[in-house]
Design a protein around this nucleic acid. Sequence first.
DNA 1: AGTGGGACCTGTCCGC
DNA 2: TGCGGACAGGTCCCAC
Length: 284
Amino acid sequence: MRGLKPVLEGQRIETVILRRADLRFPFPQGFAARLAGRQILGLSRRAKYILAEIEGGDCLLVHLGMTGRFTVLRPDGSRNLGEFYFETGAGSDAAGVHDHVVMALADGTRLVYSDPRRFGMMDLFPSGEAATHKLLRDIGVEPLGNGFHAEYLAERFKGKSAPLKAALLDQGIVAGLGNIYVCEALFRTGLSPTRRAGTLAHGKRVDPRLDVLVRHIRDILGEAIAAGGSTLQDFAGTDGKAGVYQQRFAVYDREGEACTRCGAPVRRRVQSGRSTFYCAACQK
DNA sequence: AGTGGGACCTGTCCGC
DNA sequence: TGCGGACAGGTCCCAC
């Protein structure tokens, strides 16, 4: 987002080329034609969605899925990878078989959306419908925003029988937490991923463990953003390995390794189809 | 209503 | 060396 903002805001889109009819969903009717010739007025973010306000009243919605990324190709031939890139070891893909959308901007810049697994999506709809858009309307609070605090979690967890892991991954409660961050946050907080969320929302007083959880979630996201920024800088001229970023995980993808706190082996189990990594001794 | 699991997709890695 | 299968992730959708 922060990387794309200065590149795109105020720019005019000249042409949009779709190299296939769909990502996760089909592109909406007239997608390219409705963008062509229009100015990008502003960029914003909601949960893991990017929203671009388009001149004329449309809103462009983009989700990068797992492997989606934007590459900025400058007219002088230089190339800036998008900062959203999570995959490791993919290297450069000069062939561009996964370059699904190419936008030519008025100043000669080309913006390329690539997405090998096509878990990403794009939609275009009248701006006024943002609040009621199916993909946006039920999204919960921003974890770095003022609305995210222990009282909020207590309210949302009340009576919940779902495991903590599932509750924190639920975008309708907290927007933008992924599998890795949830594993790490629960480890730091010492809470078991299988504990039922409602057990932290008993009684009248807010459970202090929710305060700790909130703090760790904020910390982890802050660290990830900082690491993402430095990873981006490392990208220039390298193979794109996000080494620094990965070393920060205490439990994620460390099955069998010693817990950094107690030495017990880190365990892995599958919850709602996703791997959960945790320390059974430290997390209760 | 809330919850759980399958489906989507492809590159990578592991074992035979 | 080659091949098949498991696996990773975010989100929607559909069952119970």
